[in-house]
Simulated assay, not measured.
Amino acid sequence: RRLRDLNLRNNRVAVLFPGAFTGLKCLQTLDLGGNNLRHLAAAALQGLPRLCRLYLDRNRLLEVSEAAFRPVQAMLGVLDLRANALRYLSQRPRQPPPFRHLRRLYDLKLQAQQPYGLRVVPHHFFQGLGALRSLYLSQNALSAVPADAFDDLVQLRYLTLADGSGGMGTLPAGVFKNLSRLRSLDLESAGLRGLGPEVFGNL
């Protein structure tokens, strides 16, 4: 019961049965990158109250839910979801904001969703992430980012929307209005065709 780090990267894990990690109360790092997970059940991460770092990159996750992260919400600081299969076609949320109870999360990677990118950021998608410092959204063919997308990210220092190639065109006025602590903003090859007034206000 003293295990701190568990590396399961690059296997063929397709299912996490409820209770799979029961008893690992001291685990701080769980690496499940490079597996075949399509769904994260509500009880899949049960029994990991001290988990700080969760790597789920390069799986096949189709969506993420608030319920899936509830068992690890107390301590989770790093969440890597890059190169999964997350995709949104509307700014209208399909479900409650998935990260809204991850109050300690400071690093979130969502870049390069497969095969066509995230496409759209739903309204309030990042709600509750008041401690987040780094957000990676590059290589996602984004066509729309709502004006309220980053409203809760008051501690954000680094944001990348680079390599979008989705024809975003413009950014809504005030989209960065609450990011007064931002130090680095990467918009290289983001598909922008114009910059309207007040886009970079308060930065």
Rank of each mutant, 00 (worst) to 15 (best):
L153Q: 06
Y116T: 08
Q111F: 13
Y158F: 15
L105N: 02
D186F: 13
F150K: 02
V13M: 14
L187I: 12
V64A: 07
G130E: 07
R183H: 14
L32K: 01
G174N: 08
N84V: 10
P96N: 05
S165L: 14
N202R: 13
L40F: 02
G194D: 14
L203N: 10
D186L: 08
L61I: 05
S134K: 13
D152N: 14
F125K: 00
N140V: 09
L81M: 12
Q111L: 04
L48P: 06
R181V: 10
A173F: 11
P18D: 07
R70P: 01
F99Q: 01
D151N: 11
G164F: 07
F125D: 02
L129S: 01
A42V: 06
S189E: 13
F150L: 04
G130V: 06
M168N: 04
L8M: 09
G169F: 14
L79W: 08
A141W: 03
M75R: 14
L132F: 00
N36H: 05
K177N: 13
R9C: 09
V121Q: 03
F17E: 14
L86R: 09
L62R: 12
G174M: 07
L89Q: 15
N84I: 04
H124W: 05
L118E: 06
F176N: 07
Q155R: 10
P172G: 08
F99R: 01
H124P: 00
F125E: 06
V175T: 09
S180L: 06
R1K: 13
K25Y: 14
F125S: 01
K177M: 08
Q155C: 15
Q73K: 15
V121F: 07
L3N: 09
R193C: 13
R1W: 12
L129Y: 01
G166R: 10
R193V: 12
L81G: 08
G191H: 04
L40G: 04
L76A: 09
A147Y: 03
M75G: 03
G201R: 15
G128Y: 00
L182D: 09
R82S: 12
R157C: 07
G164K: 07
R1Y: 14
Y116N: 11
V15I: 14
L159T: 06
T29W: 11
N178A: 15
R103M: 00
T160F: 06
S184Q: 15
D107I: 03
S165K: 13
L3D: 11
V199C: 09
E66W: 13
C52I: 02
V199D: 10
P197S: 13
L179D: 02
D186C: 05
Y55C: 08
L16F: 01
H101T: 12
R60D: 10
L142A: 06
K25I: 12
